[in-house]
Amino acid sequence: MEIDLFDETNKITAEQKEMIQSILEFSGDYIHLEEETEMSILFVDNEKIKEINREFRFKDIPTDVISFALEDEVKDDFILDLAGFEGTVPRNIGDIVISVDKAIEQASEYGHTLDRELGFLSLHGFLHLNGYDHMEPDEEKEMFGLQKEILDAYGLER
């Protein structure tokens, strides 16, 4: 899986980027995602995520993570004609935006490390990109159960 990480805050260490890359690759294997999959994560501050939240979710507050799943928008509406093309076309599942400020706040509030919070938020966004949601009780049970299962299997427990 190809994961592009962009840090607008300059607060994410190389080790944290490696950990996030590792947990998402582990998660991709765990849910049997195709190897030729790509996505991106953008790390921002509270002000930037507040702007994004206002523009796309109509909520004028900072949040911890926002996911933009590409396949939600174009599920059956977009057909790419690859006749004559040799090679593999990666499947782009979308983009995740994480507020580093919120991650720091929540790590302190929940009494765990920033690494654990960044791993959790990255995985949470990743699951949204792969069709999981928590709007209904049964969806929430499934998504949060899978989240815990993956975090435990990876070894990033609370």
Rank of each mutant, 00 (worst) to 15 (best):
E18V: 06
M19G: 05
M19Y: 05
Q21T: 12
Q21R: 13
S22V: 02
L24N: 02
L24R: 13
L24C: 01
L24W: 04
E25C: 09
F26C: 04
F26T: 09
G28W: 14
I31Y: 04
I31K: 04
H32D: 15
H32F: 12
H32E: 14
L33H: 06
L33S: 08
E34N: 08
E34H: 06
E36A: 08
E38V: 11
S40C: 13
I41H: 00
D45V: 03
D45S: 06
N46I: 04
N46W: 09
E47R: 11
E47H: 10
E47P: 05
K48H: 10
K48F: 03
K48Y: 01
I49K: 01
K50M: 12
K50Y: 06
E51Q: 05
I52Y: 02
I52F: 08
N53T: 15
R54T: 10
R54K: 15
E55W: 02
F56A: 13
R57G: 01
D60K: 04
D60N: 13
P62E: 15
I66Q: 01
S67I: 01
A69Q: 11
E73A: 09
E73G: 02
E73R: 14
E73T: 12
E73I: 13
E73K: 07
E73H: 07
V74F: 15
D76T: 09
D76L: 13
D77G: 12
F78T: 08
I79A: 03
D81P: 05
D81C: 06
L82V: 12
A83R: 11
G84E: 07
G84M: 07
F85D: 03
E86W: 05
G87L: 01
P90F: 13
P90W: 10
R91T: 12
N92C: 07
N92M: 07
I93D: 03
I93E: 04
D95C: 12
D95K: 13
D95H: 10
D95P: 00
V97A: 00
I98P: 06
I98Q: 07
V100Y: 15
D101Q: 14
K102Q: 15
E105W: 00
E105P: 06
Q106L: 15
Q106N: 14
S108A: 12
S108T: 13
E109V: 08
E109G: 03
Y110N: 09
G111T: 11
G111P: 05
T113E: 11
T113S: 15
